[in-house]
Design a protein around this nucleic acid. Structure first.
Lengths: 254, 254
DNA sequence: TAGTGGTCTAGACCACGGA
DNA sequence: CCGTGGTCTAGACCACTAC
């Protein structure tokens, strides 16, 4: 028979729905435009709201949509390219970066960090909190763990607090010779505090960038930076092509 | 009053559930062990299955669990560190890599790729499919887009097909002088074909690594590699510390 | 065939943002 | 206050795996 057999692999509804919506997004909506609410979209497509939401969830994961409680679902702009390699072989806080220190506390590091720092789980460390912003939007939240042993110049001083202390720690750190660094990227979900800092709900997907800074044959500091996975594309450019350019806004299928 | 007021921010059930499960995973389960099935877990915690699944979903996203239909939910091993920078300034297919070419077709590139290649959307390109495996497990699926203009040596030859053609294209590509390359990482979801190649369901979260290869002032090739986000941690090591080491298997909270 | 996770439904109530 | 997305329920059936 001439009928091309389909349905041998029945496509899930939410998957088909996602495809349809993605095409509509390309052809019928402008960036920033708000979609009809979920109840109406579900009715329009003849599915339950939960099913519709499964499709929206995927599109949000891919950075095509942005959903905000109490507001609505909007068409997201293309992801921002965020350079993560510019500070190649450079201490954090040096250079014209977009990081803003917000806090500094003293604490014992979590087990995973202690392992990376190659220190005991009860060693004192300074924890510097920083936020990276661009165009007024929070891109990433960072916890920089600096063992007290790495910045001996701070032992006597305990005067400043908050951002001031953070800057002092960064300054002391920058006095060490930097031998090199290590980076890794993996998927994670935002904890409660990071989520608030990134203006997202807890559990939002994030790209976790782990950086180890080496000095004098030791690991002098470890940074855990969580980037909003919905809005960021991390670039490791040596050729300035995929950089922070905001690129074309609107595309249409030919 | 001495009562520390909680409940000012009522925690969602699935969030609390996720925390409880994560702790149980650390303290009561070994890697590879299978958990009770979803219906029983839901009953045991007194929640609906959908709610339990929301918690499991998050834990899977974080690489702590692995769920397989018809089998069950198992405790996942720590993520594999996968080096993505070793081929720094090197053509793909050269060196002792773990990539395996599987196919090669001729096609016009999708719009997004055409833009990166700086060619028209209807230019002919070779599309090489490769799979990266480690320890018998599929880690990543790649589509390498090579404009026909980049490998003029192939115009006369059209004899081999499949993997053989793929290797020929890679060989021809390697003859060009490589000026540099560009890399970016972002979150995506696996398409139907990639999902099958990665042994995951469509829509599974992946880390998309986009690489541009430059030669003679032009973009000679573009690679789109999708890494399993649940099992991979991408490393950009200059110091061989976070490399493919499988690391400690089992941890316990002190 | 039995048991697993994956999909889907039709409701309900809650938390948040803006008017 | 109303409308939005976020959470949750108690079911049902389907697709896959292994025995």
């Amino acid at each position: 028979m001439g009928t091309t057999q389909l349905d041998t692999v029945p496509e899930p509804k939410y998957w088909h729905l996602k495809t349809v919506l993605a095409e509509a997004l390309d052809s019928e909506f402008a960036v920033g435009e708000i979609l009809p609410n979920e109840r109406e979209l579900a009715a329009r497509f003849g599915v339950a709201r939960a099913t519709l939401r499964q499709a929206l969830e995927q599109l949000e994961l891919e950075g095509r949509l942005q959903r905000r409680r109490g507001v609505g679902t909007t068409v997201a702009p293309p992801r921002m390219g965020v350079d993560v390699s510019s500070s190649e072989t450079a201490w954090p806080g040096t250079g014209p970066e977009s990081w803003q220190p917000t806090e500094c506390t003293a604490a014992a590091p979590p087990a995973a960090v202690a392992r990376l720092l190659e220190i005991g789980p009860d060693a004192q460390t300074h924890v510097v909190r920083r936020v990276r912003t661009s165009h007024g939007q929070s891109l990433a939240a960072e916890l920089l763990h600096v063992p007290a042993a790495s910045v001996p110049g701070l032992t006597g001083i305990d005067a400043p607090s908050g951002p001031a202390l953070a800057r002092t720690v960064l300054r002391e750190l920058a006095r060490l010779p930097l031998d090199g660094q290590d980076r890794s990227v993996e998927l994670g979900s935002a904890g409660a505090v990071d989520a608030k800092e990134l203006d997202r709900l807890p559990g939002a997907p994030v790209l976790v960038v782990t950086t180890r800074y080496f000095s004098g044959g030791r690991t002098a500091a470890v940074s855990l930076a969580t980037y909003r996975a919905d809005t960021c594309r991390l670039t490791f450019g040596a050729h300035g092509g995929l950089e922070i350019r905001h690129e074309e806004e609107q595309r249409r299928v030919s």
